[in-house]
Simulated scan of single mutants.
Amino acid sequence: MTDTLTRPASPAVPVRSSRRRKPRAYQIFRVVILTVVVLLFIAPLAWMLIASLKTNVDIYDASKTFLFTPTLENYDNVLSRNNYFEFIFNSFWVAFCATVLSMILGVPAAYAMSRFTMHRSALVVLMARIIPGVSLLVPWYFIFANLRLVGGYEVLILSHMFVSLPLIVYIMMSFFDSMPLELEEQAQVDGLTPIGAFRRITLPLSIAGLATSGILSFIFSWNNFMFALVLSGANTKTLPVAIFNFVSYASIDWGSLMAAAVVVTVPIMVIALFTQKYIVSGLTAGATKG
């Protein structure tokens, strides 16, 4: 009896099962797929950057795809000769004003719709997001032309707010829905008014949502082409519209066109790179409720 109890246990022989091979194969497959997807997204950006450093002759020469003499003439043509700093200011000013005004109107509206369960009003706001913008250009142009506003900053800011405002409302609604109502009730017990609780408790806790909605609204306004093409003037032309200065009936200045595209793309990429954590946290805030 004692011999059977004190007998040392035999070392377990590791059994290699097929279950350990699946995660390894899955990881390899995942790395390959992610690499392919990243390359597909990076390839156009890389070609745009490389082409912006070439002359038009080198762009059309297949033998100089990677081996060529870089030049900054295209950037000098874009920034100095064509005065693209003015277009950069126009894009920044329109995007900034549209974002700030949409935040001022959209955040309180989203809070009211969230706390008072105004689902029908939310659907009306969503309709503005669903309607194609191109269907509104002719009525907008007719109305603003009669008001003599076409070509000014005001009409561009209002047209961008038409899409930015519903975007901010829906992002902030999901964020406010995920916040516990008990925090505001406790603040009101301590003597704050409902507006005071919203200003001192709710807003500081919703920084991630505010950052997300503001960044996405700014990116939309910066990249918008259709509204600015119809409603802007010679002095209020934005960057996406100004790029078409290098496209003519007979030829296309590809080098300057790619340099202008880099000028448009780089600021947005830098903003997205440094604010990606706020965007991810804000977009996923409404996924966990309760």
Rank of each mutant, 00 (worst) to 15 (best):
R115D: 02
F116R: 12
H119V: 06
R120W: 06
R120V: 01
R120N: 01
S121K: 04
L126P: 01
L126K: 01
L126T: 00
M127Q: 08
R129E: 07
R129Q: 13
I131D: 07
P132W: 09
G133R: 11
S135F: 15
L136R: 02
L137C: 02
V138F: 11
W140K: 04
Y141M: 10
F142L: 15
I143V: 15
I143L: 14
I143D: 03
A145I: 09
N146I: 05
N146D: 06
L147R: 01
L147F: 13
V150Q: 03
V150E: 05
V150N: 08
Y153G: 08
E154V: 15
E154D: 12
E154K: 11
L156R: 03
I157L: 02
I157G: 05
I157S: 06
L158N: 06
L158P: 05
S159Y: 07
H160I: 00
M161E: 14
F162D: 03
S164T: 11
S164F: 03
L165A: 13
L165K: 15
P166Y: 01
P166A: 03
P166E: 00
L167N: 05
I168G: 02
I168E: 02
V169A: 03
I171R: 02
F175G: 07
F176S: 11
D177R: 10
P180C: 10
L181P: 01
L183N: 13
E184D: 12
Q188A: 12
V189P: 00
V189H: 00
D190E: 13
D190K: 11
L192K: 12
P194F: 12
P194D: 05
I195A: 13
G196R: 03
G196F: 00
F198Y: 15
F198W: 14
R200N: 14
I201Y: 08
T202L: 06
T202P: 00
T202Q: 00
P204R: 11
A208Q: 11
G209S: 06
G209C: 01
A211H: 04
I215F: 05
L216R: 05
L216Q: 03
F218C: 03
F218P: 05
I219C: 05
F220K: 04
S221F: 01
N223G: 04
N223V: 08
N224H: 13
N224K: 09
M226D: 07
M226K: 06
F227S: 10
L229T: 05
V230T: 13
V230M: 12
V230G: 10
V230E: 08
L231P: 11
L231Y: 07
L231A: 10
S232K: 03
G233K: 02
A234L: 08
